[in-house]
Amino acid sequence: MISRLFSGPYALRAFIVAVLLSAALGWTVWDQVQIIRHGTEIVLKTRPVDPRSLFRGHYARLNYDISRIARTKISSGGKLKRRARVFVRLKPGEDGFWQVTEVSSARLTPAEGSVILNATVRSVSRKQVWLRYGIERYFAPKQKALGLEKKFRDRKIEVGVIVRVAKYGAAAISGLQLEGKKVYDEPLF
């Protein structure tokens, strides 16, 4: 296939290019669908920051409680650098939202009743570490994004994001929860 990419007939080369590019995109879609379909469901408490996107429509930026972690919870590799990869263990809390129980720069062993999320260090201070999980934006139509933003800001209702976590630690948003009730379920397709 590779040699045909450079020397075959033009139509065949164009076909191979389109297949390769589609495969790269298709893999991303497939990965997300698999996580949403088979991942473990957890609910994360969130607060918002500005919604804004020039090219990708409107979105609410999500600021999870698990995004900011006290350094005392970091079990190994105490010297964390920006952009370092870390592993975060979550367990369900009494309020129904999942909480951080352990953070490590070394891979964590799976345990019953917990999930392990992959994260990247966004910034580090003396007492706290800010992490990102790749699920910090919720894209929605303009009215919905602005409505969510208003509800978040008013803090009159408790907002949870339903997330599915794959065995290898990747996460995908699968729905929204308002005051403990699921109000939106992300369709696979």
């Binding site: 389109a18 997300q32 990708r56 699920i135 910090e136 919720y138």
Partner: peptide, 19 residues
Amino acid sequence: GAGMFGVNIMLIAQIYHID
């Protein structure tokens, strides 16, 4: 074609809320 590949990357990220 090459431009649409980039557009698709961005919009698939949007469809599945990938950040």
